[in-house]
Protein backbone atom coordinates (compact mmCIF):
# COMPACT_ATOMS: atom_id res chain seq x y z
CA UNK A 1 0.00 0.00 0.00
CA UNK A 2 1.21 3.50 -0.72
CA UNK A 3 1.43 6.30 1.80
CA UNK A 4 -1.80 7.98 0.70
CA UNK A 5 -3.80 4.77 1.16
CA UNK A 6 -2.23 4.15 4.57
CA UNK A 7 -2.94 7.74 5.60
CA UNK A 8 -6.57 7.45 4.57
CA UNK A 9 -7.01 4.25 6.58
CA UNK A 10 -5.13 5.74 9.53
CA UNK A 11 -7.41 8.77 9.54
CA UNK A 12 -10.35 6.41 9.99
CA UNK A 13 -8.72 5.04 13.13
CA UNK A 14 -6.92 2.06 11.60
CA UNK A 15 -3.95 1.76 13.98
CA UNK A 16 -2.54 -1.11 11.94
CA UNK A 17 -2.27 1.09 8.86
CA UNK A 18 -0.78 3.90 10.94
CA UNK A 19 1.83 1.53 12.36
CA UNK A 20 3.01 0.77 8.83
CA UNK A 21 3.79 4.48 8.57
CA UNK A 22 5.43 4.40 12.00
CA UNK A 23 7.62 1.53 10.82
CA UNK A 24 8.69 3.57 7.83
CA UNK A 25 9.53 6.79 9.69
CA UNK A 26 10.58 5.73 13.17
CA UNK A 27 14.31 5.41 12.43
CA UNK A 28 14.64 8.88 10.93
CA UNK A 29 12.51 10.50 13.64
CA UNK A 30 14.47 8.73 16.38
CA UNK A 31 17.82 9.68 14.86
CA UNK A 32 16.82 13.31 14.40
CA UNK A 33 15.60 13.47 18.02
CA UNK A 34 18.78 11.76 19.22
CA UNK A 35 20.99 14.31 17.46
CA UNK A 36 18.73 17.08 18.67
CA UNK A 37 18.69 16.25 22.40
CA UNK A 38 21.84 14.09 22.65
CA UNK A 39 20.20 11.59 25.01
CA UNK A 40 18.95 8.17 23.85
CA UNK A 41 16.31 7.81 26.58
CA UNK A 42 14.84 11.25 25.90
CA UNK A 43 15.00 10.67 22.15
CA UNK A 44 13.01 7.48 22.71
CA UNK A 45 10.33 9.37 24.65
CA UNK A 46 10.16 12.10 22.03
CA UNK A 47 9.82 9.57 19.23
CA UNK A 48 6.98 7.76 20.99
CA UNK A 49 5.24 11.04 21.82
CA UNK A 50 5.59 12.14 18.21
CA UNK A 51 3.76 9.11 16.83
CA UNK A 52 1.09 9.08 19.52
CA UNK A 53 0.42 12.81 18.97
CA UNK A 54 0.48 12.34 15.22
CA UNK A 55 -2.10 9.55 15.39
CA UNK A 56 -4.35 11.65 17.59
CA UNK A 57 -4.00 14.75 15.44
CA UNK A 58 -4.15 12.98 12.09
CA UNK A 59 -7.52 14.57 11.29
CA UNK A 60 -5.78 17.96 11.25
CA UNK A 61 -3.38 16.79 8.53
CA UNK A 62 -5.19 17.61 5.33
CA UNK A 63 -2.81 16.77 2.53
CA UNK A 64 0.73 17.37 1.39
CA UNK A 65 4.03 16.35 2.83
CA UNK A 66 3.42 13.85 5.62
CA UNK A 67 7.12 13.52 6.45
CA UNK A 68 7.39 17.29 6.97
CA UNK A 69 4.25 17.24 9.12
CA UNK A 70 5.66 14.40 11.24
CA UNK A 71 9.02 16.12 11.64
CA UNK A 72 7.25 19.29 12.65
CA UNK A 73 5.65 17.44 15.59
CA UNK A 74 9.02 15.90 16.48
CA UNK A 75 10.98 19.17 16.31
CA UNK A 76 8.35 20.89 18.43
CA UNK A 77 8.67 18.11 21.01
CA UNK A 78 12.46 18.51 20.94
CA UNK A 79 12.13 22.27 21.35
CA UNK A 80 9.79 21.81 24.32
CA UNK A 81 12.21 19.43 25.95
CA UNK A 82 15.25 21.63 25.35
CA UNK A 83 13.43 24.68 26.69
CA UNK A 84 12.53 22.86 29.89
CA UNK A 85 16.03 21.42 30.19
CA UNK A 86 17.83 24.68 29.40
CA UNK A 87 18.74 25.58 32.97
CA UNK A 88 20.18 22.15 33.64
CA UNK A 89 22.00 22.06 30.32
CA UNK A 90 23.74 25.38 30.91
CA UNK A 91 25.13 24.16 34.19
CA UNK A 92 26.28 20.77 32.93
CA UNK A 93 28.30 21.47 29.80
CA UNK A 94 31.04 19.27 31.22
CA UNK A 95 28.78 16.25 30.82
CA UNK A 96 28.94 16.72 27.06
CA UNK A 97 32.57 15.61 27.07
CA UNK A 98 31.20 12.16 27.80
CA UNK A 99 28.87 12.45 24.81
CA UNK A 100 28.50 8.99 23.27
CA UNK A 101 29.42 8.12 19.70
CA UNK A 102 25.93 6.95 18.73
CA UNK A 103 25.42 3.95 16.53
CA UNK A 104 28.99 3.13 15.68
CA UNK A 105 29.84 -0.42 14.79
CA UNK A 106 33.26 -1.61 13.74
CA UNK A 107 32.61 -3.50 10.55
CA UNK A 108 35.49 -3.93 8.12
CA UNK A 109 37.61 -1.42 9.93
CA UNK A 110 40.95 -1.54 11.63
CA UNK A 111 40.82 -0.74 15.33
CA UNK A 112 42.56 2.55 14.56
CA UNK A 113 40.02 3.57 11.92
CA UNK A 114 37.19 2.66 14.26
CA UNK A 115 38.74 4.67 17.09
CA UNK A 116 39.09 7.75 14.87
CA UNK A 117 35.53 7.46 13.55
CA UNK A 118 34.23 6.98 17.06
CA UNK A 119 36.05 10.06 18.26
CA UNK A 120 34.78 12.10 15.31
CA UNK A 121 31.18 11.04 15.87
CA UNK A 122 31.43 11.90 19.53
CA UNK A 123 33.01 15.24 18.72
CA UNK A 124 30.34 16.09 16.15
CA UNK A 125 27.63 15.36 18.70
CA UNK A 126 29.33 17.62 21.22
CA UNK A 127 29.68 20.39 18.65
CA UNK A 128 26.02 19.99 17.65
CA UNK A 129 24.93 20.48 21.24
CA UNK A 130 26.72 23.84 21.42
CA UNK A 131 24.67 25.24 18.49
CA UNK A 132 21.57 27.34 19.13
CA UNK A 133 18.46 25.17 18.90
CA UNK A 134 17.17 26.68 15.65
CA UNK A 135 20.50 26.27 13.88
CA UNK A 136 20.90 22.72 15.13
CA UNK A 137 17.45 21.80 13.83
CA UNK A 138 18.17 23.10 10.33
CA UNK A 139 21.54 21.36 10.26
CA UNK A 140 20.03 18.03 11.35
CA UNK A 141 17.21 18.28 8.81
CA UNK A 142 19.33 19.27 5.82
CA UNK A 143 22.74 17.69 6.42
CA UNK A 144 21.79 14.58 8.41
CA UNK A 145 18.23 13.83 7.26
CA UNK A 146 18.85 15.09 3.69
CA UNK A 147 15.80 17.41 3.57
CA UNK A 148 15.68 20.00 0.82
CA UNK A 149 15.64 23.67 1.83
CA UNK A 150 11.96 23.83 0.92
CA UNK A 151 11.04 20.78 2.98
CA UNK A 152 13.03 22.05 5.98
CA UNK A 153 11.25 25.38 5.59
CA UNK A 154 7.91 23.56 5.72
CA UNK A 155 8.94 21.67 8.89
CA UNK A 156 10.10 24.81 10.66
CA UNK A 157 7.40 27.08 9.18
CA UNK A 158 10.07 29.59 8.17
CA UNK A 159 10.92 31.14 4.81
CA UNK A 160 13.52 29.34 2.69
CA UNK A 161 15.79 32.34 3.12
CA UNK A 162 15.77 31.86 6.89
CA UNK A 163 16.60 28.17 6.45
CA UNK A 164 19.53 29.08 4.16
CA UNK A 165 21.03 31.61 6.52
CA UNK A 166 20.55 29.44 9.62
CA UNK A 167 22.10 26.50 7.82
CA UNK A 168 25.13 28.51 6.77
CA UNK A 169 25.68 29.80 10.30
CA UNK A 170 25.32 26.29 11.72
CA UNK A 171 27.79 24.89 9.19
CA UNK A 172 30.22 27.68 9.89
CA UNK A 173 30.01 27.01 13.64
CA UNK A 174 30.60 23.31 13.01
CA UNK A 175 33.53 24.14 10.75
CA UNK A 176 35.05 26.31 13.47
CA UNK A 177 34.54 23.59 16.06
CA UNK A 178 35.95 20.84 13.85
CA UNK A 179 38.88 22.89 12.56
CA UNK A 180 40.64 22.08 15.80
CA UNK A 181 40.11 18.40 15.03
CA UNK A 182 41.12 18.22 11.39
CA UNK A 183 43.07 15.02 11.95
CA UNK A 184 39.76 13.33 12.84
CA UNK A 185 38.19 14.02 9.47
CA UNK A 186 38.54 11.06 7.11
CA UNK A 187 41.08 11.58 4.37
CA UNK A 188 38.56 11.44 1.53
CA UNK A 189 36.41 14.10 3.20
CA UNK A 190 39.42 16.25 4.13
CA UNK A 191 40.65 16.40 0.56
CA UNK A 192 37.12 17.20 -0.62
Amino acid sequence: MDEQTLLLASKQGDAGAFNRLVEHYQTSIYNAALRMVGDPAIAEDITQDTFVSAFRALHTFSAGNFRAWLFRIATNACRDHLRSAQVRRNTSLDALVESPAFGLTSEQETPEEFAVRRELSSFIQQALMTLPTDQRMVLILVDIQAFSYEEAARVLKKPVGTVKSRLSRAREAMRAALSTQRELLPAQIRSG
Binding site: T27, N31, R35, F102, G103, L104, T105, L120, S121, I124, L139, D143, I144, A146, R171, M174, R175, L178, L185, P186, I189, R190, G192
Partner: peptide, 11 residues
Protein backbone atom coordinates in the same frame (compact mmCIF):
# COMPACT_ATOMS: atom_id res chain seq x y z
CA UNK B 1 34.40 18.40 4.92
CA UNK B 2 31.98 19.31 7.69
CA UNK B 3 28.92 18.56 5.55
CA UNK B 4 30.54 15.30 4.46
CA UNK B 5 31.17 14.28 8.06
CA UNK B 6 27.56 15.05 8.99
CA UNK B 7 26.20 13.07 6.03
CA UNK B 8 28.29 10.02 6.95
CA UNK B 9 27.19 9.96 10.57
CA UNK B 10 25.92 6.44 11.25
CA UNK B 11 22.19 5.85 11.48
Amino acid sequence: AVVGALRTLPT
